[in-house]
Write a protein that binds this DNA or RNA. Sequence first.
DNA 1: TATAATTGTGTTGAAATTACACGATTCGGA
DNA 2: TCCGAATCGTGTAATTTCAACACAATTATA
Lengths: 242, 242
Amino acid sequence: MPYTHTHRVLVALDCIIFGFDGEGLNLLLIKRHFEPEYGNWSLMGGFLNEGESLEEAAHRIVYDLTGLDNNYLEQFQTFGAINRDPVERTISVAYYALVNIEDQDVNAIRLHNASWISLHKKPKLIFDHDRMVQEALKRLRTKAALNPIGFELLPGKFTIPQLQKLYEAIYDTKLDRRNFSRKVLSTNLLVGTGEKDMSSQTKKGQLYTLNAPEYVRQQQGNFGFLPELIMADDRTMPLSNT
Amino acid sequence: MPYTHTHRVLVALDCIIFGFDGEGLNLLLIKRHFEPEYGNWSLMGGFLNEGESLEEAAHRIVYDLTGLDNNYLEQFQTFGAINRDPVERTISVAYYALVNIEDQDVNAIRLHNASWISLHKKPKLIFDHDRMVQEALKRLRTKAALNPIGFELLPGKFTIPQLQKLYEAIYDTKLDRRNFSRKVLSTNLLVGTGEKDMSSQTKKGQLYTLNAPEYVRQQQGNFGFLPELIMADDRTMPLSNT
DNA sequence: TATAATTGTGTTGAAATTACACGATTCGGA
DNA sequence: TCCGAATCGTGTAATTTCAACACAATTATA
């Protein structure tokens, strides 16, 4: 026997998908070829189905778009303003995902009319999606300062300068090369492969991989190879609008 | 014209209400005198109504129980496992609230069959409420380490030792009295009133109030008058079960 | 008036952070 | 083939922060 309360609403899921192209943070956005808001930009989203948990639905949505099913995915906020969706009362549970751009399924992305767009050049998005991006970035910044999740955005093998560029992109700041390197190595999270980065134009840096057991261990705990200021909540967002 | 998608579900809100009694953290829990789970302990909750945002609904629920409407309230996670509510598919948006125990409406609490229960003596709760409490505490710990929200649990005037006891309760740890005092005062958040704490049995400490403008400013920013270890995510929870 | 408990402030050594310096590697053009 | 520009890797010293501890002052109680 169901509850007598009658107000049942649609539950949507929207995913902020972050990627890193070696220079800056990118978002995977959709140019909608369906209603409502045909032709406008939005996040990838969908509705919760029967017999599906929120986690499962979010995974499904990211998988549909990227072909990836083993990436970092974290629920961060639920948006429930009354008229956030003008079509019908809908609450949206928002997740952010960190994906390695190299692993994506290019066909799936083309099929959905999606593109990677630099965070700095983000167009205006539909509904409250701009706000969602802003909140996702805030959460990513806090999370990445406390946990070593940045690696989720990089290929399996990477150099320390690449890692530094990533953190500089996340926090929109500059870090000292030498101090960063020392801090990262002191965490024991990296294992040198001996190989060199052949894609580099000048001096080829050493490629590292994650020390997997240590990585799993530190996922739960503390982190912080960033300077103090990084944690501040009120720094400027590198968003073109909102 | 509504969406053609048909799966509409009940949206519940559950509130983890924290209070501080001078010694430890307490939860405001309900001994249910209604179905389902008659006679068992649960969090205060309710359903989302038509024409009501999530924020508004959470405020309503806290207000109904405590008579307070100006307390700290933060959404922290949405729970959506398929069978989390055996009666009917329901997703629950969870909020945690920080209230000053002294300001509560005792009649409202009695009416709802609610009591303050020490976190250390928490009984088994219904559904996934134990997990909600655990996650709320985790979030409170992270949040309180980065932002000066602890004051929300104290009366308008308080002594530094009282504040210290509060932080020791939140993190289930001991802090050095002298270092704590110095750190707190260095934040510029406190203003001495000159008055003494007349409730103390021994030496009467000075009463402080919040430096309101500075408080608002730092709400957004960084904080941290706690030692490093505090930030760790994997410390033991002072919960009797789960 | 002495004692116990607690509050307020100071000091010091250790550790972490920051700001730089320098040599090594690689590519490309003279 | 050699030189310069760019980048990578490691080192060091000054500064700042943190943690541990000492001691004097206040108040209730015996």
